[in-house]
Amino acid sequence: MSNAITLNYHIEGSDFINAGNASSQIKKVLQQLNVDPKTIKRIVVALYEAEVNVVAHAYKGDISAEITTEDITITLDDEGPGIVDIDMAMTEGYSTASPKVREMGFGAGMGLPNIKRNVDELNIQSEVKVGTKVVMKVKLS
């Protein structure tokens, strides 16, 4: 696909001060591209939850977003403990978050269900004690 835009960001685990920076930058780019505001909200809500997940659970991670005229594909690839049971993690209310994460207003077991609700395609691959890769796609037109 021609005219694709690729954006890359790095995330450090436990860095709650900067959690959301990548989501904020990607939101600004989507606004500049005149993407429908409701679509932007779906994308950034899913991305922000995923970004907070990396900060909350992983040691470090990378975000890559590829934007074409048709869709946006966002990949979050982290080094961390991985997810033992992805089906359980997708269940509303199930959480393994620390008290620190709960103090931040998250960790109620709604992150992954929130992500799923807002994207058109979601793929999660995880290896325990290695890391997790989340790929989400949202159609733009």
Binding site: A19, S23, K27, K41, V44, V45, Y48, M104, G105
Partner: peptide
Amino acid sequence: GLCNLQAIRTAEMAD
């Protein structure tokens, strides 16, 4: 009553 940066970030994402 959640007074931290994530409250502002969340508001930003949620418009």
